[in-house]
Simulated scan of single mutants.
Amino acid sequence: MTSDPNDVIDLGNRLLKQYPDAFSTEFNTNKEVVQNMTYVSSNRLRNRIAGYITRQKQSHR
């Protein structure tokens, strides 16, 4: 999977929609959840997805 910003946003939004209660406002927690729920091959991409989800959760408090 490429690390295109649109791919990160699309996958992050899909995960948030399917599992809204699985994620928190903590990056490290979200990083582990993303790793367990997806088959992302690179740590950089996993971290970008987890960071996007963390920012979304923090802005929707």
Rank of each mutant, 00 (worst) to 15 (best):
L11W: 00
N28E: 15
L45G: 10
N47E: 15
H60F: 00
E26S: 13
Y52C: 07
I49Y: 02
N13L: 02
G12I: 05
Q35K: 15
H60T: 03
A22P: 02
Y19R: 07
R44C: 10
N30D: 04
R61G: 09
L16R: 02
H60Q: 09
E26V: 13
Q35W: 11
P5M: 03
S3E: 12
F23P: 00
T54K: 02
N47A: 15
S59H: 06
Y39V: 02
R55H: 09
K31C: 11
L45W: 12
N43G: 15
S41W: 09
Q18N: 10
R44W: 12
N28Q: 14
P20T: 08
R61C: 05
R55V: 06
L11N: 01
R44D: 15
R48G: 07
T38D: 11
R61W: 06
T2C: 06
N36A: 11
T2H: 05
V33G: 00
H60I: 03
I49G: 08
T29K: 07
V8M: 07
Y19I: 02
K17W: 08
I53E: 04
A50T: 01
L11V: 08
F27W: 13
T2V: 09
T2D: 13
R48I: 07
P5F: 00
D7G: 01
S24M: 04
Q35I: 06
Y52I: 06
M37Y: 14
Y19C: 06
R46T: 13
S3L: 14
V33L: 05
Y52V: 11
I53T: 03
L45Q: 13
T29W: 10
S3M: 12
N47H: 13
R14H: 06
D10W: 10
M1G: 14
V40T: 11
D21Q: 12
I9A: 12
N36W: 08
K57R: 12
P20K: 04
V40L: 15
R48Q: 14
V33F: 00
H60A: 09
I53C: 03
S59I: 04
Y39N: 09
N28M: 14
L45M: 15
S42C: 04
I9P: 01
F23N: 00
